[in-house]
Design a protein around this nucleic acid. Sequence first.
DNA 1: ATAAATACCATACATTTGTATGGTACAATT
DNA 2: AATTGTACCATACAAATGTATGGTATTTAT
Lengths: 226, 226
Amino acid sequence: MVFIFVNNWNSPNGSVSMSKELTEIQNKILNFLIEQKVGKRIPPSLAEIALHFGYKNRATVQQHLQAIERKGYIKKKPKLSRSIEITSEELYFISRPIMGEVAAGNPLTIYPDTIDTIQLPTIVKMPSQSFLLRVKGDSLKDAYIFSGDVVIVKPDAELVNGQIVVAILEDAAVVKRFCIKNGSIELHSENSEYKPIVIEINDPKFKIVGSVVGIYRTMGKKILDN
Amino acid sequence: MVFIFVNNWNSPNGSVSMSKELTEIQNKILNFLIEQKVGKRIPPSLAEIALHFGYKNRATVQQHLQAIERKGYIKKKPKLSRSIEITSEELYFISRPIMGEVAAGNPLTIYPDTIDTIQLPTIVKMPSQSFLLRVKGDSLKDAYIFSGDVVIVKPDAELVNGQIVVAILEDAAVVKRFCIKNGSIELHSENSEYKPIVIEINDPKFKIVGSVVGIYRTMGKKILDN
DNA sequence: ATAAATACCATACATTTGTATGGTACAATT
DNA sequence: AATTGTACCATACAAATGTATGGTATTTAT
């Protein structure tokens, strides 16, 4: 997992609280904090930070954290373990692989490897083990999922009628609304131009990959040319 | 903040790892864990849990946690403080107020109070101090924001050209793409049917509320009637 | 009727953790 | 030349934390 530090403080209406630039080492420590929070979901203790950077004692880390806090990048509650808060978490992005493309209209080939990377804001937390797929095609446009959207897929999730799932059909993947009826599975498009796909439950060429637990679409910053 | 516990284990393809039902108290403790993680962003220590429930020592909490872990709802690393992980975090929802409605097309009145509540999945982390607004109207449909979508608004965020912002114009709120040009502010719709709104920077009837940092749209479970 | 699970209590103990203090070395600034 | 900031080290200590053990009372299941 690669984390990218996006320093935005110098933008037009820059944040007031970030008073000074971080040194290289302080920057590395801040990145580690973000990494730990996104990955492990809890902030590290001083000892864990020291271990990671090879420091022989916690005092070194302690002093670095004090410096980073003085400069306004983190906040911590005194005496409380693992209480480091990242001041402006939404300004940081984590680089996440997109595992393939998936057809919302007609089936498309699914790639075994990473095809692209997305800068996912750290505020968008992904369930563990879930992965990202980019949607192509417009058969789900009535469910407001569009070509280019990135869907968060949780594998082996429970399947409920009416849920949007990712399924493999003869080595191609589709995003459809799932419906089980009279012992056979129907995969619906929201777009009425596409007819439902009907499969027998035991069809060996069919497999449910997982359910779509969320979508992500980049919101900010579009160049206005006029 | 009110948290709602959604017990999903008994759904058709129930998860395998959740072996037994929790008792009432165990349930309350699990809810507290979720509450703490979503709110404070870090799991509580045994002492903090004991304090919250009025227990006189940590051992009581310790035994409850062991029971909850035995039943598969949480996992924790031995000897490590604040290392409780919620096994299937994406199954829980947090109840969050929607503060008002906002027009993406023509301006609408913004309500001072909560108008509705949404069940936001705990995987969608909101930046602190941000709030939710429901979008009405279709002027942003080319940016794929639709009537009914819930936008996450971060107040006082830095304003960058091309960013989507919530602004107040004569006591009504709009969602538009922000653009500053030659000393005056332009608010663009993606939908070409609407013309840009142009305001002078110092116009007292105009105020930027914040920037849209994300959208959320309920994905799962739609009743298929056929 | 007995066993097992639940729901607490008290006490004890080894680590972990945050923090304070003092020291060395080096680079940049004043 | 003196000061400040950075980047480490070592040691010490109180508080926080997780854990183990043993006990009591109540409810639930066998």
